[in-house]
Design a protein around this nucleic acid. Structure first.
Lengths: 191, 191
DNA sequence: TTCATTTGATAACAAATGTTATCGCATGCT
DNA sequence: AGCATGCGATAACATTTGTTATCAAATGAA
Protein backbone atom coordinates (compact mmCIF):
# COMPACT_ATOMS: atom_id res chain seq x y z
CA UNK A 1 0.00 0.00 0.00
CA UNK A 2 2.63 2.53 1.00
CA UNK A 3 5.56 1.52 -1.17
CA UNK A 4 4.23 3.48 -4.14
CA UNK A 5 4.73 6.69 -2.12
CA UNK A 6 8.15 5.74 -0.78
CA UNK A 7 10.22 7.88 -3.12
CA UNK A 8 8.14 10.99 -2.48
CA UNK A 9 9.42 11.22 1.07
CA UNK A 10 13.04 12.11 1.79
CA UNK A 11 13.20 10.02 4.95
CA UNK A 12 15.61 7.45 6.29
CA UNK A 13 14.60 3.82 5.96
CA UNK A 14 14.19 3.64 9.74
CA UNK A 15 11.89 6.65 9.96
CA UNK A 16 9.88 5.45 6.99
CA UNK A 17 9.34 2.04 8.57
CA UNK A 18 8.51 3.59 11.91
CA UNK A 19 5.92 5.85 10.31
CA UNK A 20 4.15 3.17 8.34
CA UNK A 21 4.08 0.93 11.40
CA UNK A 22 1.62 3.38 12.96
CA UNK A 23 -1.01 2.39 10.40
CA UNK A 24 -3.53 -0.45 10.77
CA UNK A 25 -5.46 -2.21 8.03
CA UNK A 26 -9.19 -3.00 8.16
CA UNK A 27 -11.75 -4.44 5.76
CA UNK A 28 -15.29 -3.15 6.09
CA UNK A 29 -18.59 -3.68 4.22
CA UNK A 30 -20.48 -0.99 2.32
CA UNK A 31 -22.35 1.60 4.41
CA UNK A 32 -20.00 1.31 7.35
CA UNK A 33 -20.03 4.49 9.43
CA UNK A 34 -16.40 5.44 10.09
CA UNK A 35 -17.28 8.63 11.96
CA UNK A 36 -20.68 9.60 13.36
CA UNK A 37 -22.05 13.11 13.34
CA UNK A 38 -21.17 14.72 16.67
CA UNK A 39 -18.13 12.51 17.35
CA UNK A 40 -14.60 13.85 17.52
CA UNK A 41 -12.55 12.51 14.63
CA UNK A 42 -9.49 10.68 15.93
CA UNK A 43 -8.47 8.64 12.92
CA UNK A 44 -7.24 9.54 9.48
CA UNK A 45 -8.10 6.93 6.84
CA UNK A 46 -6.33 6.06 3.63
CA UNK A 47 -8.27 4.07 1.05
CA UNK A 48 -6.56 1.01 -0.40
CA UNK A 49 -9.74 -0.18 -2.12
CA UNK A 50 -13.28 1.16 -2.12
CA UNK A 51 -14.94 4.52 -1.80
CA UNK A 52 -16.15 6.81 0.92
CA UNK A 53 -18.45 9.79 1.24
CA UNK A 54 -18.62 12.63 3.73
CA UNK A 55 -22.10 13.93 4.47
CA UNK A 56 -24.13 16.19 6.69
CA UNK A 57 -27.45 15.37 8.24
CA UNK A 58 -29.72 18.23 7.27
CA UNK A 59 -33.21 17.83 8.75
CA UNK A 60 -33.16 14.12 8.03
CA UNK A 61 -32.02 14.52 4.44
CA UNK A 62 -28.45 13.73 3.82
CA UNK A 63 -26.21 16.08 2.01
CA UNK A 64 -23.04 14.58 0.55
CA UNK A 65 -20.18 17.05 0.21
CA UNK A 66 -17.22 14.91 -0.77
CA UNK A 67 -16.31 11.60 -2.35
CA UNK A 68 -13.02 9.77 -1.90
CA UNK A 69 -11.50 6.86 -3.81
CA UNK A 70 -8.37 4.71 -3.81
CA UNK A 71 -5.17 6.28 -2.43
CA UNK A 72 -6.91 9.31 -1.00
CA UNK A 73 -6.84 10.22 2.67
CA UNK A 74 -10.08 10.97 4.45
CA UNK A 75 -11.08 12.60 7.72
CA UNK A 76 -13.60 15.10 8.91
CA UNK A 77 -10.75 17.53 8.67
CA UNK A 78 -11.86 20.35 10.96
CA UNK A 79 -12.86 17.88 13.68
CA UNK A 80 -9.61 16.00 13.26
CA UNK A 81 -7.41 19.11 13.40
CA UNK A 82 -9.17 21.02 16.14
CA UNK A 83 -10.79 18.22 18.19
CA UNK A 84 -14.24 19.66 17.63
CA UNK A 85 -17.31 17.38 17.41
CA UNK A 86 -17.76 16.67 13.73
CA UNK A 87 -20.73 18.13 11.88
CA UNK A 88 -20.14 15.62 9.13
CA UNK A 89 -20.35 11.84 9.05
CA UNK A 90 -17.92 9.62 7.16
CA UNK A 91 -19.25 6.43 5.57
CA UNK A 92 -18.14 3.79 3.09
CA UNK A 93 -20.10 3.47 -0.13
CA UNK A 94 -18.52 0.24 -1.38
CA UNK A 95 -17.00 -2.61 0.64
CA UNK A 96 -13.58 -1.14 1.37
CA UNK A 97 -10.05 -1.89 2.49
CA UNK A 98 -8.71 0.95 4.63
CA UNK A 99 -5.59 1.94 6.53
CA UNK A 100 -5.89 4.28 9.45
CA UNK A 101 -3.64 6.19 11.83
CA UNK A 102 -4.52 7.72 15.19
CA UNK A 103 -4.29 11.47 15.50
CA UNK A 104 -1.69 11.27 18.27
CA UNK A 105 0.65 9.26 16.09
CA UNK A 106 0.13 11.49 13.09
CA UNK A 107 0.83 14.57 15.19
CA UNK A 108 4.14 13.03 16.22
CA UNK A 109 5.05 12.47 12.60
CA UNK A 110 4.00 15.93 11.51
CA UNK A 111 6.00 17.51 14.31
CA UNK A 112 9.06 15.69 13.08
CA UNK A 113 8.74 16.22 9.35
CA UNK A 114 7.93 19.90 9.54
CA UNK A 115 11.59 20.47 10.34
CA UNK A 116 12.33 19.22 6.84
CA UNK A 117 11.83 22.38 4.72
CA UNK A 118 10.90 20.48 1.58
CA UNK A 119 8.13 18.54 3.28
CA UNK A 120 7.02 21.56 5.23
CA UNK A 121 6.61 23.66 2.07
CA UNK A 122 4.77 20.85 0.39
CA UNK A 123 2.36 20.67 3.31
CA UNK A 124 1.71 24.40 3.09
CA UNK A 125 1.13 24.16 -0.65
CA UNK A 126 -1.33 21.32 -0.09
CA UNK A 127 -3.29 23.52 2.28
CA UNK A 128 -3.39 26.33 -0.24
CA UNK A 129 -4.42 23.97 -2.99
CA UNK A 130 -7.24 22.66 -0.84
CA UNK A 131 -8.47 26.20 -0.31
CA UNK A 132 -8.36 26.84 -4.03
CA UNK A 133 -10.24 23.63 -4.76
CA UNK A 134 -12.98 24.66 -2.37
CA UNK A 135 -13.21 28.06 -4.02
CA UNK A 136 -13.49 26.49 -7.43
CA UNK A 137 -16.11 24.02 -6.26
CA UNK A 138 -18.07 26.79 -4.60
CA UNK A 139 -17.96 29.15 -7.57
CA UNK A 140 -19.13 26.37 -9.86
CA UNK A 141 -22.00 25.78 -7.48
CA UNK A 142 -23.30 29.33 -7.82
CA UNK A 143 -22.32 29.83 -11.43
CA UNK A 144 -23.50 26.66 -13.09
CA UNK A 145 -26.90 25.04 -13.37
CA UNK A 146 -27.29 21.54 -11.91
CA UNK A 147 -27.21 20.17 -15.47
CA UNK A 148 -23.91 21.91 -16.14
CA UNK A 149 -22.50 20.67 -12.84
CA UNK A 150 -23.52 17.16 -13.78
CA UNK A 151 -21.70 17.52 -17.09
CA UNK A 152 -18.67 18.85 -15.21
CA UNK A 153 -18.70 15.75 -13.04
CA UNK A 154 -18.78 13.51 -16.09
CA UNK A 155 -15.78 15.37 -17.49
CA UNK A 156 -13.74 15.90 -14.37
CA UNK A 157 -14.67 13.11 -12.00
CA UNK A 158 -15.98 10.17 -14.02
CA UNK A 159 -15.30 7.83 -11.10
CA UNK A 160 -18.13 9.48 -9.24
CA UNK A 161 -20.58 8.89 -12.08
CA UNK A 162 -19.48 5.30 -12.51
CA UNK A 163 -19.20 4.13 -8.93
CA UNK A 164 -21.50 6.24 -6.78
CA UNK A 165 -25.28 5.56 -6.48
CA UNK A 166 -27.30 8.30 -8.06
CA UNK A 167 -29.02 9.58 -4.95
CA UNK A 168 -25.65 10.45 -3.44
CA UNK A 169 -24.68 12.24 -6.65
CA UNK A 170 -27.96 14.16 -6.53
CA UNK A 171 -27.31 15.35 -3.00
CA UNK A 172 -23.76 16.26 -4.02
CA UNK A 173 -25.13 18.37 -6.86
CA UNK A 174 -27.66 19.98 -4.55
CA UNK A 175 -30.78 18.59 -6.24
CA UNK A 176 -33.32 15.84 -5.59
CA UNK A 177 -33.00 12.39 -7.13
CA UNK A 178 -36.09 13.13 -9.17
CA UNK A 179 -34.52 16.21 -10.63
CA UNK A 180 -31.27 14.46 -11.41
CA UNK A 181 -33.27 11.85 -13.32
CA UNK A 182 -34.87 14.66 -15.31
CA UNK A 183 -31.47 16.17 -16.03
CA UNK A 184 -30.19 12.85 -17.31
CA UNK A 185 -33.19 12.23 -19.54
CA UNK A 186 -32.98 15.72 -21.04
CA UNK A 187 -29.30 15.21 -21.80
CA UNK A 188 -30.13 11.94 -23.55
CA UNK A 189 -32.79 13.63 -25.69
CA UNK A 190 -30.32 16.21 -26.94
CA UNK A 191 -27.85 13.61 -28.16
CA UNK B 1 -2.65 52.15 10.35
CA UNK B 2 -0.14 49.49 11.30
CA UNK B 3 0.63 50.41 14.89
CA UNK B 4 -2.42 48.53 16.17
CA UNK B 5 -0.83 45.29 14.94
CA UNK B 6 2.65 46.07 16.26
CA UNK B 7 2.52 43.85 19.33
CA UNK B 8 1.28 40.85 17.38
CA UNK B 9 4.60 40.51 15.60
CA UNK B 10 7.71 39.47 17.47
CA UNK B 11 10.05 41.51 15.27
CA UNK B 12 12.82 43.98 15.94
CA UNK B 13 12.01 47.64 15.59
CA UNK B 14 14.24 47.79 12.50
CA UNK B 15 12.55 44.88 10.74
CA UNK B 16 9.13 46.20 11.63
CA UNK B 17 9.93 49.59 10.16
CA UNK B 18 11.48 48.04 7.09
CA UNK B 19 8.39 45.90 6.50
CA UNK B 20 5.87 48.68 6.85
CA UNK B 21 7.97 50.91 4.57
CA UNK B 22 7.06 48.54 1.71
CA UNK B 23 3.44 49.66 1.89
CA UNK B 24 1.96 52.60 -0.03
CA UNK B 25 -1.22 54.47 0.76
CA UNK B 26 -3.86 55.44 -1.82
CA UNK B 27 -7.29 57.02 -1.73
CA UNK B 28 -9.75 55.88 -4.37
CA UNK B 29 -13.42 56.60 -5.18
CA UNK B 30 -16.20 54.01 -5.10
CA UNK B 31 -16.30 51.47 -7.96
CA UNK B 32 -12.57 51.62 -8.55
CA UNK B 33 -11.34 48.43 -10.15
CA UNK B 34 -8.26 47.29 -8.24
CA UNK B 35 -7.80 44.13 -10.27
CA UNK B 36 -9.39 43.28 -13.61
CA UNK B 37 -10.59 39.84 -14.57
CA UNK B 38 -7.78 38.15 -16.48
CA UNK B 39 -4.97 40.20 -14.92
CA UNK B 40 -2.32 38.70 -12.69
CA UNK B 41 -2.68 39.99 -9.16
CA UNK B 42 0.54 41.67 -8.03
CA UNK B 43 -0.63 43.71 -5.08
CA UNK B 44 -2.07 42.81 -1.72
CA UNK B 45 -4.36 45.48 -0.29
CA UNK B 46 -5.18 46.33 3.29
CA UNK B 47 -8.24 48.44 3.94
CA UNK B 48 -7.81 51.44 6.22
CA UNK B 49 -11.26 52.81 5.40
CA UNK B 50 -13.95 51.62 3.01
CA UNK B 51 -15.11 48.33 1.58
CA UNK B 52 -14.28 46.04 -1.30
CA UNK B 53 -15.91 43.17 -3.12
CA UNK B 54 -14.47 40.31 -5.14
CA UNK B 55 -16.60 39.16 -8.04
CA UNK B 56 -16.71 36.96 -11.11
CA UNK B 57 -18.06 37.90 -14.48
CA UNK B 58 -20.52 35.16 -15.36
CA UNK B 59 -22.08 35.73 -18.78
CA UNK B 60 -22.34 39.43 -18.12
CA UNK B 61 -23.93 39.01 -14.72
CA UNK B 62 -21.70 39.65 -11.83
CA UNK B 63 -21.36 37.23 -9.03
CA UNK B 64 -19.95 38.61 -5.79
CA UNK B 65 -18.18 36.02 -3.66
CA UNK B 66 -16.56 38.04 -0.91
CA UNK B 67 -16.81 41.33 0.94
CA UNK B 68 -14.00 43.00 2.85
CA UNK B 69 -14.02 45.87 5.33
CA UNK B 70 -11.60 47.87 7.47
CA UNK B 71 -8.37 46.15 8.56
CA UNK B 72 -8.85 43.17 6.27
CA UNK B 73 -6.38 42.21 3.58
CA UNK B 74 -7.61 41.56 0.07
CA UNK B 75 -6.22 39.94 -3.05
CA UNK B 76 -7.40 37.53 -5.68
CA UNK B 77 -5.56 34.99 -3.64
CA UNK B 78 -4.98 32.19 -6.13
CA UNK B 79 -3.80 34.66 -8.77
CA UNK B 80 -1.58 36.40 -6.24
CA UNK B 81 0.02 33.20 -4.93
CA UNK B 82 0.46 31.33 -8.18
CA UNK B 83 0.76 34.16 -10.72
CA UNK B 84 -2.22 32.89 -12.66
CA UNK B 85 -4.54 35.30 -14.49
CA UNK B 86 -7.30 36.07 -12.05
CA UNK B 87 -10.81 34.78 -12.71
CA UNK B 88 -12.10 37.31 -10.22
CA UNK B 89 -12.14 41.09 -10.23
CA UNK B 90 -11.53 43.24 -7.15
CA UNK B 91 -13.43 46.49 -6.82
CA UNK B 92 -14.16 49.13 -4.19
CA UNK B 93 -17.77 49.58 -3.11
CA UNK B 94 -17.28 52.76 -1.07
CA UNK B 95 -14.70 55.51 -1.47
CA UNK B 96 -11.74 53.87 0.24
CA UNK B 97 -8.35 54.44 1.79
CA UNK B 98 -6.05 51.53 1.05
CA UNK B 99 -2.52 50.37 1.70
CA UNK B 100 -0.86 48.00 -0.71
CA UNK B 101 2.31 45.98 -1.01
CA UNK B 102 3.84 44.42 -4.13
CA UNK B 103 4.05 40.66 -4.27
CA UNK B 104 7.84 40.72 -4.59
CA UNK B 105 8.21 42.67 -1.37
CA UNK B 106 5.72 40.49 0.46
CA UNK B 107 7.53 37.36 -0.69
CA UNK B 108 10.74 38.75 0.78
CA UNK B 109 9.01 39.32 4.10
CA UNK B 110 7.38 35.90 4.13
CA UNK B 111 10.66 34.22 3.32
CA UNK B 112 12.21 35.93 6.34
CA UNK B 113 9.46 35.45 8.88
CA UNK B 114 8.83 31.82 8.12
CA UNK B 115 12.03 31.08 9.98
CA UNK B 116 10.27 32.34 13.09
CA UNK B 117 8.33 29.24 14.24
CA UNK B 118 5.63 31.20 15.98
CA UNK B 119 4.80 33.27 12.92
CA UNK B 120 5.13 30.27 10.66
CA UNK B 121 2.63 28.25 12.67
CA UNK B 122 0.25 31.14 12.74
CA UNK B 123 0.45 31.39 8.96
CA UNK B 124 -0.36 27.70 8.62
CA UNK B 125 -3.28 28.03 11.00
CA UNK B 126 -4.60 30.96 8.99
CA UNK B 127 -4.59 28.81 5.88
CA UNK B 128 -6.47 26.04 7.65
CA UNK B 129 -8.95 28.49 9.06
CA UNK B 130 -9.57 29.90 5.61
CA UNK B 131 -10.28 26.40 4.33
CA UNK B 132 -12.71 25.82 7.17
CA UNK B 133 -14.45 29.12 6.51
CA UNK B 134 -14.94 28.17 2.88
CA UNK B 135 -16.36 24.81 3.88
CA UNK B 136 -18.77 26.43 6.27
CA UNK B 137 -19.83 28.98 3.67
CA UNK B 138 -20.30 26.27 1.09
CA UNK B 139 -22.30 23.97 3.34
CA UNK B 140 -24.59 26.83 4.30
CA UNK B 141 -25.09 27.50 0.61
CA UNK B 142 -26.44 24.03 -0.07
CA UNK B 143 -28.17 23.54 3.26
CA UNK B 144 -30.01 26.79 3.75
CA UNK B 145 -32.64 28.57 1.70
CA UNK B 146 -31.80 32.04 0.42
CA UNK B 147 -34.08 33.49 3.11
CA UNK B 148 -32.18 31.61 5.81
CA UNK B 149 -28.86 32.72 4.34
CA UNK B 150 -30.08 36.30 4.42
CA UNK B 151 -31.01 35.90 8.08
CA UNK B 152 -27.56 34.43 8.73
CA UNK B 153 -25.97 37.48 7.15
CA UNK B 154 -27.99 39.78 9.40
CA UNK B 155 -26.80 37.82 12.44
CA UNK B 156 -23.22 37.12 11.48
CA UNK B 157 -22.17 39.92 9.15
CA UNK B 158 -24.37 42.95 9.82
CA UNK B 159 -21.78 45.19 8.16
CA UNK B 160 -22.69 43.65 4.84
CA UNK B 161 -26.37 44.39 5.30
CA UNK B 162 -25.69 47.94 6.42
CA UNK B 163 -23.03 49.04 3.98
CA UNK B 164 -23.38 47.00 0.80
CA UNK B 165 -25.92 47.84 -1.96
CA UNK B 166 -28.61 45.22 -2.20
CA UNK B 167 -27.85 43.98 -5.68
CA UNK B 168 -24.37 42.92 -4.54
CA UNK B 169 -25.90 41.15 -1.55
CA UNK B 170 -28.33 39.37 -3.88
CA UNK B 171 -25.52 38.08 -6.07
CA UNK B 172 -23.63 37.05 -2.94
CA UNK B 173 -26.66 35.03 -1.81
CA UNK B 174 -27.03 33.50 -5.25
CA UNK B 175 -30.40 35.05 -6.10
CA UNK B 176 -31.69 37.90 -8.24
CA UNK B 177 -32.35 41.36 -6.83
CA UNK B 178 -36.02 40.78 -7.43
CA UNK B 179 -36.00 37.64 -5.36
CA UNK B 180 -34.07 39.29 -2.54
CA UNK B 181 -36.72 42.00 -2.46
CA UNK B 182 -39.36 39.30 -2.14
CA UNK B 183 -37.43 37.65 0.69
CA UNK B 184 -37.20 40.94 2.55
CA UNK B 185 -40.88 41.75 2.15
CA UNK B 186 -41.90 38.28 3.36
CA UNK B 187 -39.68 38.65 6.42
CA UNK B 188 -41.31 41.99 7.19
CA UNK B 189 -44.81 40.47 6.95
CA UNK B 190 -43.94 37.82 9.53
CA UNK B 191 -42.84 40.34 12.16
C1' DT C 1 -34.45 -19.47 -6.97
C1' DT C 2 -37.41 -16.28 -4.34
C1' DC C 3 -38.36 -12.38 -1.84
C1' DA C 4 -37.26 -8.03 0.19
C1' DT C 5 -34.62 -3.95 -0.47
C1' DT C 6 -32.36 -0.58 -3.06
C1' DT C 7 -32.08 2.15 -6.91
C1' DG C 8 -33.76 4.83 -10.65
C1' DA C 9 -37.44 6.64 -13.98
C1' DT C 10 -41.58 9.09 -14.68
C1' DA C 11 -45.92 11.73 -14.03
C1' DA C 12 -48.80 15.30 -11.83
C1' DC C 13 -48.88 18.93 -9.16
C1' DA C 14 -46.80 22.59 -5.88
C1' DA C 15 -43.41 25.82 -4.54
C1' DA C 16 -39.38 28.52 -5.37
C1' DT C 17 -36.89 31.40 -8.25
C1' DG C 18 -35.89 33.86 -12.62
C1' DT C 19 -37.26 37.39 -16.33
C1' DT C 20 -38.98 41.47 -17.93
C1' DA C 21 -41.10 45.65 -17.30
C1' DT C 22 -42.65 49.62 -14.71
C1' DC C 23 -42.63 52.80 -10.98
C1' DG C 24 -40.74 55.76 -7.36
C1' DC C 25 -37.34 57.35 -4.35
C1' DA C 26 -32.77 58.81 -3.21
C1' DT C 27 -28.36 60.48 -4.53
C1' DG C 28 -24.99 63.04 -6.72
C1' DC C 29 -23.66 66.20 -10.23
C1' DT C 30 -23.96 70.70 -12.71
C1' DA D 1 -33.02 73.81 -8.25
C1' DG D 2 -33.13 70.49 -11.98
C1' DC D 3 -31.74 66.36 -14.07
C1' DA D 4 -29.61 61.95 -14.90
C1' DT D 5 -28.47 57.82 -12.68
C1' DG D 6 -28.50 54.18 -9.45
C1' DC D 7 -31.08 51.54 -6.43
C1' DG D 8 -34.93 49.04 -4.74
C1' DA D 9 -40.02 47.48 -4.75
C1' DT D 10 -43.58 45.23 -7.11
C1' DA D 11 -46.43 42.78 -10.60
C1' DA D 12 -47.19 39.30 -14.25
C1' DC D 13 -45.61 35.61 -16.29
C1' DA D 14 -42.02 31.80 -17.37
C1' DT D 15 -38.91 28.39 -15.88
C1' DT D 16 -36.73 25.55 -12.66
C1' DT D 17 -36.83 22.61 -8.96
C1' DG D 18 -39.18 20.12 -5.18
C1' DT D 19 -42.87 16.75 -3.47
C1' DT D 20 -45.41 12.79 -3.57
C1' DA D 21 -46.72 8.70 -5.56
C1' DT D 22 -46.20 4.73 -8.53
C1' DC D 23 -43.77 1.45 -11.21
C1' DA D 24 -39.84 -1.22 -13.03
C1' DA D 25 -35.31 -2.95 -12.90
C1' DA D 26 -31.31 -4.34 -10.37
C1' DT D 27 -29.25 -6.20 -6.35
C1' DG D 28 -28.52 -8.82 -2.31
C1' DA D 29 -29.72 -12.15 1.26
C1' DA D 30 -32.01 -16.57 2.66
Amino acid sequence: MFSQFRNEFPLSEEKWNEYISYFDRIEVPAKTILLKEGEISKKLFIIEKGCIRVWFNNNGKDLTTQFFFENQSVASIESFMKKFPSQAAVETIEPSVLWYIHKNDLDKILEEIKEIPDLRDRLINMLFQRTFDYMKYFVSFIKDSPAQRYLNLIEERPQIIQRVPQHYIASYLGVTTVHLSRIKSKLLQKK
